[in-house]
Simulated assay, not measured.
Amino acid sequence: MGNRFICMTKKDAKEIAGTRSKRLGNRSQRKLPSEEELLHRQVLSLALHQSQRFEGSMSRRFNGGNTSSRRRPLSDPFSNGKQLSEFLETLKCKKIVLIHGEGFGAWCWYKTIALLEEAGLLPTALDLAGSGIDITDTNHVTKLSEYSKPLIDHLQNLPEDEKVILVGHSIGGACVSYAMEQYPEKIAKVIFVCATMVSNGQRPFDVFADELGSAENFMQQSKFLVHGNGKEKAPTGFMFEKQQMKGLYFHQSPAKDVALAMVSMRPIPLGPVMEELWLSPEKYGSCRRFYVQTLDDHALSPDVQEKLVRENPPEGVFKIKGSDHCPFFSKPQSLHKILVEIAQIS
């Protein structure tokens, strides 16, 4: 009896092993979608269903309440072009204007641009005056209105019935705020990405006081100042040393992106960041604002970002864990998903 039992068990085990091997063989022959296809499906699925859940690296807050995200299985709702077209038609505003921060240029958004275009949105990245490949001499940019001119020109040239979503990074948030005061009717939503979301009468530089010291001490003692008109005259800008920039901005970013930044960043005009912004409830206050916090940020600490949100509360707050001051480099997919969700909020 015992021998028969052992014999049957071996036979059963052999059959089970054969069946399993066959299944594994079939599975290995299936064509797995590429990483890009998976990302594309995931993003479009989130946008279509107005999903309220994201990767564990992100959380968000609306009207004072926290909502943490959990990942869930995603189906592919865009198996044909008709469904994709229907998704695009649900968005009233598909144009997104990306405004870089201090020293950067339109080039820093290259990953975000590619992801947004793949999702069917219409991104435009601008070079502020004296930034990126803009030919303006940085030493001649002395006012926020001059620094923001490419953005203001872009808004002025929009068709009368057209609006855009503005995204401002770091000190670019001051330019976005200035634009909100000038052309609120052209702006559907504003997204501040670890940005200087200043209050009325505040200077953009004041936001960084915890890291850089007071504006007065910085102007007198900083070794990063640029004297474009000669040492005997007032400084015209500032620029950090490479190692300083790496520690402040890029400690979580890929080496290739850091290398790109090191050869692309330009001096920061001093006048615009030392200028007070005057923002009215009727204009600036009429625009819908959202804030994206970066929780491993050395340039604008999470505590400072939280303070900005408390002092000038936006409609919604999103957080990205593990991101340095440049989420478009260190966490591009997480940033992208947030931008997509905000774009489709009605």
Rank of each mutant, 00 (worst) to 15 (best):
S28N: 07
H100P: 12
M265G: 01
V340A: 10
M219A: 09
F328P: 01
Q243S: 10
M219W: 01
F238D: 03
C7P: 00
F250S: 03
E181V: 07
R41I: 08
K163D: 06
I342E: 02
N200F: 05
I191W: 11
D303T: 13
T196H: 07
A299V: 02
C287N: 04
D76M: 02
S131D: 07
T9Q: 13
I6V: 13
P281D: 13
R20F: 10
G230S: 09
K149V: 02
E36H: 13
L128H: 01
D297C: 08
V207K: 09
Q202G: 08
A261S: 14
G120K: 04
R72H: 07
I99W: 07
V167T: 06
V304P: 01
L270H: 08
S253F: 04
H154I: 03
V317C: 11
G271M: 05
S45F: 03
R71W: 04
A215W: 08
F62R: 10
T138S: 08
L128Q: 03
E315Y: 10
R266G: 05
P272S: 13
L39V: 11
I268L: 06
F205C: 04
I171H: 02
A234L: 15
N26Y: 11
E118H: 01
R71A: 08
S68D: 14
G271H: 05
L270I: 07
A195Y: 06
K95D: 15
G230R: 06
L277H: 07
I191S: 10
K82D: 13
R41M: 09
H40Y: 06
K111R: 15
A129T: 07
L48C: 01
N312Y: 14
F5R: 15
G2E: 15
I268P: 00
M274L: 15
V258D: 04
H298I: 02
Q156D: 14
L128V: 04
E311F: 01
A174V: 07
A129V: 05
K331C: 12
H325E: 13
C194H: 10
S148Q: 05
C7G: 00
Y178P: 00
P73L: 15
V141C: 09
E306F: 03
F87A: 08
I268V: 14
P272L: 15
D137G: 00
E181S: 07
P267Q: 14
Q50Y: 07
V273K: 04
A114L: 14
S214N: 14
E306A: 13
V141D: 03
L126D: 02
H140C: 10
L279M: 12
S222T: 09
Q293M: 15
L88C: 08
V304D: 05
